[in-house]
Structures are given as C-alpha cells and as structure tokens.
Design a protein around this nucleic acid. Structure first.
Length: 904
RNA sequence: GGGCGAUUAGCUCAGUUGGUUAGAGCGCUACCUUGACACGGUAGAGGUCAGAAGUUCGAAUCUUCUAUCGCCCA
C-alpha cells in the first residue's frame, strides 16, 4: 500500500500474480471474512444462504470442471454475502473408497507389499497416512481459485462426526426395513474386486463376435438347436435353453434335453416370454450366474445356478479352462468349439457393454450376497418435491432425466468389498444370524452374546455423500437438530454436474426428506460440461485437458474465472481453449487501466486524499449538477445494468451477468464516459464542477468493482482499496452491493444520447472518405430542435474532440457545398471536406443510403397500412413503427435535399 | 428403441414472455503509438438464423415433419 505522500494510484501495469498472491484465500481466511455464524441467523434474524460444496475426491487434483463449478458457487456465495445474507459455504472432501484404496495399494505394490500382507488395520493406517500427506492437495488448489468457504467447517466423509452419521443412518434404515441383505446378481469389478452400483457402470459400445453354437438334442440323434451368444465362455454354466412360447420354430422342442458342448451336461429346453424371437436364432442359452435376466428366468423355472467365472475374472470351471482369464477363455473355447464342429458361424456384432467407471474394465455380472437400500419407498417423495417445484432445477429440462430415473428406480447396492470406507455395522453370531447396531457393544446386547464377527464389507462412498447436507451441518443421527441445522438447513443452491444427478443429487434429496423431513436444498444449478476446442471431452489420456494452475499462472485467477463464466452458458457444453483466457486477462487489464485514469483525475482535482474522501463520502449522483450529456447517459445506463445484473442472478443466468457488466464497462464507461470526461476536464477552469464529474466516475467505478467482485475477487479487492484509504483488513467482499434505483431506471436518455450518435456518424463519414486523422474538418450541425441545439452546444467541445472536427452548431445554416452529409436523430450533419471528398463518391453514397432508407420506409409503410396489424398489435408496437417511419421519411427528405445540393 | 438437447457471421457463442434493418468475443480489412490502456482505440467487411410446411397482422423465437450432431436411459 502506498504512503500518504506518494501518489495514491495503481502501478502502471497490472501484475496479476503479485496482486493475487497478496489477496490469496489465506489472507481472507486469516481475517475470518467468510465465517458464517448460526447466531446471526437465529438471534439477529439475518437471512441465511447456504451452499454445499460437492466434496471433491481426496485423490483428485484440480480440473477445469472444478474451476467452473467452484467459481459458480463462489459467485453465488459472494453475491449473497454482499446482498446482506449470512452466507455459508461448506467445504469438504470425500474418501473415495475405490479410488483411494487403489492409489494406496499401487504405492504399496511398488514396495512389494499387498494389503493382505499388512492386514486390515495396518493397511488402513497406511491409507490415513497417505491422506494426511496428499489428501489436502485438491483443497489447496481450490484455495488458489480464491473461493470463499468457511474453511473452519471443512469436513471429510471419514471424520468421526460424519462416520457416526453414516452408521446411524444405516441402522435407522435397517430398523425401518429399508436396508436388507440379499443374494443378487450385481455388477462386479474384477480389478477392484468389489461390487458396484448400477450407476458406477458405464455402458460403452464394443465390437464383439456373436457366436452361433449347436447344442445336440439328447433324445434326437443328429438334431440340434442353435443359440447365439457373445459370451461363449459361459456356456459351461448353462442350465437351460429358452425359447419364446409363441415361436413356432421351436414349439415341439420345448421339454427336450440339450447337451452343452464341451461340458456335456444335459439341460432342458424351456419356454419363457423373456426370449426375443428376433434376436439371433430365437433360442437363448440361460446362464443364471452370469446374467441378471437369465437369473430371473432361472428363478421362474426353478433351475440351478452354476458359476464358472471367479472374482478375479478368471475361469473356475472343471472343463480345463480354470485359471484362464475370461477373455482368453473366450478365444480358447471358440477354437475348441470349432474343432468339435459345434460352431455354426460367427458374426461381427456391436453392442453395449458395461465397464467399471474407475478401473475401465468390463464389469462381470456376479452372483453374491450384498446389502441393498430399498429405493422405491424413498423415491416417491423425492419425485414429488421436484415435480411440485419445491426443488428447482436449472436448467429445468433435467427434471425429465430425474423423473425417469425415479420412476424406474432399482435397489441400491451399497456394500463394497473394500477396506477403505465405513464398515458395515452388522455383526454375525455363530448361527450366522445378523445383528445391525451402532456399535459392537450394542450388537452384543441385542444378540445376547459377545461372540460376534463384524461384516467385512464397507459402504459405498455415496452412502456417506448422500448425507452431506446433514453431516456438514453437524448432524450425526443421534439428535435431530442443532443451531447450525436450524439456521442453515435446508441449504439454498447446489452447483453440480449433471453426470452425478443419480449418484448424488437424487440420493441427497431422498436422505434429506427421510432423515430430516425436509428438502436438502432449493435450487440445483447444473453446470456445463467442458470440452476442448474440437468438442471432445477433456481427458488425461487424450492430453487435451489444460492444467488450471498453469492457466492461472499465465493469465491470472480472475482472468480464468471471468473467461470460464463468460463462455459457459446455462445448460450447454462449453468448448475451452487456454487462449480464450485472453478475454478475461484483457478485461482485467482494461479494468486496471480505466481505474488508473480515474485515480489520476482524482489526484489532479483534489488537493489530498482526505479532501477527496470527505467529498466522496457524501456523494450521490445528482442530475441537476451534471454538465455534459454523458453524465446522464452513464448514470442511467449504470442503473439499467444493475437492474439486469440482479435479475440475472435471480434467474441463475450467470452468463448474462458477466456479459452485461463487460459491455457496460467497456462501452458505456470507458469508450463513452471516460473519453468524454477527459475532454470535459481538459478544458475546464471551474474546479468545483470538475470535482463533481470526477466523483461520478469514482462512484460508478466503485459500483462496477462491487458487482464484478463475485466473478473477479482479486483485482476488485485490490482496486477497491484505492478508492479511499481503507485498512488492509477490510474487503470489498464484505461491502454491500449497489442497487438499481427506480428514478434512474425510468429516465429517458434518448435525447441525451444524441452526442454519441453524432460522434459515431461523423467518425464513420471521416473513415469512409479516408480523411487523414491528422486533419481537422469543419463540422456543421443543424440541430433537430431547440432542445437538441442547447444540448449539443453544451457538448460541443466533446463532440469536437471525439470527432476531430471544428464544430459549429446552428439553427439555419446554408447547406454547405463540398460536404459529406448525414442525418442523425433529426440532426443534420455536414462535414466539410473541401478537396478531400469526391463528389462522385458522395453522390453514390447518398444514393445508396437513400435507397436503403426508402426500401426500409416502404416496408414500414406497408406494415402500417395493413389494418390487421394496426388492429392486433399492441399500441406501443404500432406507435414505435410509426415513429420509425416518420424518422425514416424525415431522413429521406433531408438526404434528398443534400443530394440536390451536390447535383446542383 | 425411448427421452433430452443442439443446429444463428470464417471460428466459439448471445438473442429472457413472438414486435431489431439479427448481436458479441476471437479472427479478418483499413486507419491510429493521442498523457489510462496496442492485453488499446476508431471505422468496416461478413449471416436467405440447418431444411420444409404450418400458426400469426408479424417467426431466429411457437407447432409439426425432415436432416445432421451430441448426451442420457434401455
């Protein structure tokens, strides 16, 4: 910060690194700027505003997706804080069961150790140590974004408090009959060696071979039935061949026995509606241990279940394939079948196959005993609150996806065969009976014995994430309320990607309603998906995902934040390229330089900072003291911009927010107001008048800094401290947002905009006739009326400087010869360009202009002569069309006269 | 197969309930190193709003169909 004696202005150039480093989260954190207190809501009556951070995975590192997501949350939080709310942003991380365990196992493997060598407890100690060392990375990186969380409340899903809540939630659901244990075909990841929920399986198209295999009929020598399958290795586990009961081709075969090739087992031919007559041969092998649909068929027909693929994806059969990988076995059995003559033919076949989300291998449908949450009872209210609008989605079309999932919901497999996670609070006694309780002691008490063994499995990570709105506010399941919950639950805005709508959003809604009897949040903002410039998803393997930290180093955090919001519309994918950050960087530079100009003028016109401060503290724009038109226009445009800004927030149109401010600042503030201000101040001797104009520039600059602050927190805080001297500990983040004032919103500035329009037109003429920028041309303005004449006369210096013309404003000038002429808002302009313009060129230009306007006027005339238009269209629309027509006609007349002068 | 979304300037996208001679950024062209800023300024070129039909006084905007692309669920 500058000394009192030194000039109180910004450095000549903006160094984002230096400024951002100074205002880093650490600074704001040390000040406690972003702490929220329930007392201020409960006792002082402040309105709460709460945002839940979607807990990033502890193994994660910062991606552009995080940048977008967290910038949006920060924008909402900072805006709410500045509009007087008690703004609470709850940060945290999740323990990411599979990912974390995989990372630690990989690390151990390099040291030649497996987790089984260590045993469960020692392994978990390793995981915890790993998390202490590396698990904070993502949060440190997020801090570089300048996000304004209440970091005191940082929560990890494996923390004691969160773990307690998980256990209590489990036991409560079990008690209510919503959790059960059962044998089902689940999605098994052979690499991670755990069950997965349906949501963790990603369907991907895959080219496989559709294999047609002949099964001999046991009692009809020489006859056979042919089935088609993409998984020939599982024929070893076949228990039946099914045909559709209405299929005439196979009707007489139902009840026959077929011989499984290689295995030699006799299996029945059965009839079941499930079989699709069109697919393959219409005869389907039934392999209940390796296909969920086959499992259902087998149950209906009381068939046995035989398994030939083990947990590791290797064969477990007794026919010589045991130990082989399932895909190697597939090839082997294919050649064996061919050799045996059982292979009829092979077709290329593209179909969708489930892959494990984490390990990216083909998921194995696997029959095993797992824990499930019964979803149907939970889904009904969860669907209702979204249908009723109690929770709103932005953009709303995601409701369809949500609704579809809720209406076709399947039970949720929550057990995972991992060690890292919340261990399932279920114990088995020596008779194999299960006892679910919050602790071993309680389970012993229930069971009446202490000879209990706890279930080995842990819970799905999402089983802790779905409690996030509750656990972050201190809910543990043993009490229903506390001050934080009373003050901040339900939370307000959830910002997340649509890819976890099922995983997380839907389940949080269920949990909130079930455990707290209230929705967990009001609005859900679904972010864009970020792609590269070619529209491809960002991925490490493609090498097309820029490192946000490098982007920040190059362009600055503010620039990145501004850019990503500028280019990310609600509900659309966004194509990101690092170079796009030039937009944000350039804007930050512009903001800096414009501020420098304002501060330079302040320094020039105020004797000292104190003098300025005392004038500024009582300042508000007063149109009766305005000296030039741009002061009116700027102030009116400023308030209309504020109005659009607040409206955009209300509608979650974040994209509009930055575009609106961007246009206002570059256009209205810099290009028009500041340019006019410079000229006004350069020729002035009245210091008091000058000070008023400077005060207005600071006033609007400060307002602009405030409204930009949620998007660009660093540079705005820096410049804000130069508005007046403020203690280093203060922050624009804790100041209040400017409001749009009705008085200014209603102001008609159309007349006051004439100077702008005239300046643009004259510049255009100069450029058209290639008038050298060094030469000053005489400009005669014949004003539309007395009011316009007064206004233009007052602004004549500004018009002169901005057009580089000698301006003469008259009521009745002769039409000069040798002039380019134009009409703007009824004001006739003559730029005398003796020797500079060619008559021919000007004549042609006027003729073209006249014919343009004439055809425009004709179309307006036609419209207005159409009686159904004048009868049906709203009055103001018709009125507007009339105005346009008369304006066009006036212009035509004037331009026509000019043409005559040229001709004559 | 079902659902959702997209198609507007060379590129990336705005365009809120139908009422503009359709906008921005980047790129392009010309001019300008002017005491805030060349990461800048001024002026300009560039679009039959994917196609067809319909509703309407009026359609980029609403309806239907078609085409192409993308996502989700089977």
């Amino acid at each position: 910060m500058s000394e009192e004696s030194a000039p109180f202005n910004l450095e000549k150039t903006y160094h984002h690194q230096e400024v951002e480093d100074r205002w880093r989260s650490a600074h704001w954190e040390a000040l406690g700027s972003f702490h929220a207190e329930s007392g201020r809501v409960l006792a002082e009556g402040k309105t709460p505003y709460t945002v839940l951070m979607p807990p990033p995975n502890v193994t994660g590192s910062l991606t552009l997706g995080h940048v977008l997501n967290h910038t949006l949350q920060d924008i909402f939080i900072r805006y709410s804080r500045m509009t007087g709310k008690e703004a609470l942003w709850l940060p945290g991380t999740d323990h990411a069961g599979i990912a974390t365990q995989t990372v630690v196992e990989k690390k151990l493997r390099k040291e030649g150790i497996s987790r089984h060598d260590l045993g469960r407890k020692a392994f978990l100690d390793h995981v915890w140590r790993w998390r202490e060392e590396y698990g904070g990375l993502i949060l440190r990186q997020l801090r570089r974004l300048g996000i304004s969380c209440d970091w005191r409340r940082n929560l990890f899903t494996m923390d004691d408090r969160a773990s307690e809540a998980v256990i209590n939630a489990f036991t409560a659901l079990y008690r209510d009959g919503l959790i059960y244990r059962g044998t089902r075909i689940i999605n098994w990841c052979p690499v991670s060696q755990t069950a997965l929920s349906d949501e963790e399986v990603i369907m991907k198209p895959r080219r496989d071979k559709l294999v047609y295999i002949r099964y001999a009929l046991a009692k009809r020598p020489g006859e056979y039935i042919t089935i088609a399958t993409v998984r020939p290795e599982t024929i070893l586990a076949d228990v039946a061949i099914a045909v559709n009961p209405t299929d005439p081709r196979y009707r007489d075969l139902v009840g026959e026995l077929a011989v499984v090739p290689v295995a030699g087992r006799h299996i029945p031919v059965i009839a079941d509606d499930y079989v699709d007559i069109e697919f393959g041969t219409g005869a389907l092998k039934i392999t209940p241990a390796h296909d969920p649909n086959d499992y259902e068929v087998a149950r209906r027909h009381n068939l046995p279940v035989i398994s030939v693929v083990g947990k590791d994806g290797r064969m477990t059969d007794q026919y010589g394939y045991a130990g082989m990988d399932r895909f190697d076995a597939r090839e082997k059995i294919l050649s064996d079948l061919e050799e045996r003559g059982d292979l009829e033919r092979v077709e290329e076949y593209e179909h969708n196959v489930g892959y494990s989300e984490r390990a990216d291998v083909v998921v194995e449908p696997y029959l095993s005993e797992q824990w499930f949450v019964r979803m149907k009872p939970l889904s009904e209210r969860a669907l209702q609150v979204v249908n009723d609008g109690e929770i709103r989605f932005h953009p709303p079309h995601w409701i369809n996806t949500y609704r579809h999932w809720m209406e076709n919901i399947q039970d949720w497999c929550i057990s995972r065969q991992l060690w890292w996670g919340h261990r399932i609070p279920a114990w088995y006694d020596s008779d194999g009976r299960v006892w679910v309780a919050s602790s071993y002691e309680e389970a012993c008490h229930l069971a009446g014995t202490d000879k209990l063994v706890q279930d080995d499995d842990v819970l799905d990570t999402w089983f802790s994430s779905w409690l996030w709105p509750l656990t972050t506010l201190g809910w543990t399941g043993t009490h229903s309320d506390n001050d934080d919950l009373r003050a901040f639950y339900p939370t307000d805005t959830l910002v997340t990607g649509p890819d976890i709508i099922f995983f997380w959003v839907a389940r949080m809604i269920m949990a909130g309603l079930y455990f707290k009897d209230a929705v967990p949040f009001r609005d859900v903002y679904f972010t864009s998906i970020i792609r590269d410039m070619k529209g491809r998803k960002l991925s490490k393997s493609l090498g097309n995902s820029p490192d946000p930290l490098k982007v920040i180093d190059t362009y600055g955090t503010d620039a990145l934040r501004f850019t990503i919001i500028y280019i990310a519309p609600l509900g659309q994918d966004v194509l990101f390229g690092e170079e796009k950050c030039e937009l944000g960087r350039n804007f930050a530079t512009k903001l800096w330089n414009a501020s420098r100009l304002v501060f330079m003028q302040r320094e020039k016109w105020f004797g000292s900072l104190d003098e300025f401060e005392s004038a500024y503290s009582g300042f508000s724009p007063d149109r009766t003291t305005f000296a030039f038109a741009e002061e009116h226009v700027l102030t009116a445009r400023y308030h209309s911009m504020l109005d659009r800004y607040h409206t955009a927030f209300g509608q979650f149109r974040v994209n509009d927010i930055v575009r609106n401010v961007y246009e206002f600042f570059r256009g209205d503030f810099c290009d028009w107001y500041l340019e006019a201000l410079k000229i006004y101040l350069s020729g002035i001797s009245d210091a008091d008048a000058a000070r008023k104009a400077v005060l207005l520039s600071v006033h609007v600059l400060e307002g602009t800094l405030k409204i930009l602050h949620p998007v660009m927190p660093f540079i705005t805080d820096e410049i804000w401290h130069y508005i007046i001297k403020r203690p280093h500990g203060r922050s624009v983040a804790l100041s209040s947002m400017p409001e749009a004032e009705k008085e200014w919103l209603g102001m008609d500035v159309s007349l006051l905009s004439h100077p702008r329009a005239i300046i643009s037109e004259v510049r255009s003429l100069r450029s058209l006739f290639a008038v050298p920028s060094t030469s000053t041309a005489p400009l005669i303005i014949r004003a539309a009326d007395a009011a316009a004449a007064d206004l233009l006369a007052a602004d004549s210096n500004i018009i002169a400087a901005m057009t580089k013309c000698d301006v003469q404003i008259t009521a009745s000038a002769e039409k000069p010869r040798h002039a380019a002429a134009s009409v703007v808002e009824g004001n006739e302009l003559f730029v005398q360009l003796e020797g500079l313009i060619s008559f021919e060129k000007e004549r042609a230009r006027l003729q073209k202009e006249i014919s343009n306007i004439a055809s425009y006027a004709a179309s307006l005339k036609k419209k207005l002569e159409n009686s159904s238009f004048t009868a049906n269209a709203p009055k103001d629309v018709v009125e507007r069309e009339r105005d346009k027509l008369s304006e066009a006609e006036r212009n035509l007349e004037k331009l026509g006269n000019n043409l005559d002068v040229l001709a004559g």
